[in-house]
Computed example of a mutant assay.
Amino acid sequence: MTSPDTLPTPVAAALEAANAGDIEGFLRSFAAEGAVDDWGRVFRGHDAIREWSDAEFIGKQVVLDVTAVRTEGDVTTVSARVGGKGFNGPSDFAFTVTGERLALMRITG
C-alpha cells in the first residue's frame, strides 16, 4: 500500500491540479499522447482530455478526497470520494505512469 504522501509525482500533480481547478496543470501531468479512459470512453491527447475535463471533471468543479492508494508496478490506483457539480460518490482512478508523465488515467469504479 502506498500512502497519499508517497504518490508518484505525476499522480500527485494530477490530483492537486484537479482539486485546484487547474486544467493546465492537469494536462501537464499527462504525456502528449496520454489518455483518460472514462468507463470505456477514451480521450487521447491534451485536446481531447481538455474537452472531456471541461465537460465532466474540472469543469464540474471536481473535488477528490483520497481514501486509499495502492501501487503495483507502473499503475497507482487511487480510491477517492468524488464531489463537485458532476458525479458524486466513491470512485477508483488507475493511473499508469511512464517516466515523469501519465500515460493513462482510467476511471474504474
Rank of each mutant, 00 (worst) to 15 (best):
A68K: 14
A12K: 05
S53I: 12
E16P: 03
E24V: 12
L64E: 08
A18Q: 11
F26Y: 15
V11P: 13
H46Y: 10
V42C: 06
W39R: 01
R50G: 04
T67V: 09
A68P: 06
D37P: 06
D47L: 12
E16S: 14
L7F: 01
D65P: 00
Q61E: 15
G45V: 08
E56H: 13
A55H: 09
I23V: 15
T67L: 03
P10Q: 12
V36N: 03
D65T: 14
A48F: 01
V66S: 00
L7G: 01
W39Y: 12
F26Q: 05
F30W: 12
N19T: 01
G25I: 03
R50W: 01
A31N: 09
L15S: 00
L7S: 05
R44P: 02
A31G: 14
L15M: 02
G21A: 07
G59N: 08
A18F: 11
F26W: 13
I23R: 02
E16D: 13
A17R: 07
A13I: 01
L27D: 05
A14R: 07
F57K: 04
A48H: 02
P8A: 05
G25H: 04
Q61H: 15
N19K: 03
G25T: 09
W39G: 08
R28V: 07
L27V: 13
A18V: 15
I23A: 08
A31K: 04
R41G: 03
P10N: 10
F26P: 07
V63H: 14
A20E: 08
F30C: 08
G45K: 08
P10L: 12
D38M: 07
F30N: 04
D22W: 02
H46R: 12
D38Y: 06
G40L: 03
V11N: 09
A35L: 09
L15V: 11
F43E: 06
W39C: 02
D38N: 12
D37W: 07
A20W: 03
D37E: 08
V36I: 15
P8W: 03
A35M: 13
D37N: 15
F57E: 06
A35D: 05
A14K: 09
A14D: 14
V42W: 02
R41K: 14
G25L: 02
G25S: 05
A17H: 03
F57A: 10
L27T: 02
I49G: 04
I58G: 12
A13M: 00
A18T: 15
G59Q: 07
G34H: 09
E56D: 13
P10V: 12
V62E: 11
V42I: 15
A31P: 11
S29V: 10
R41N: 14
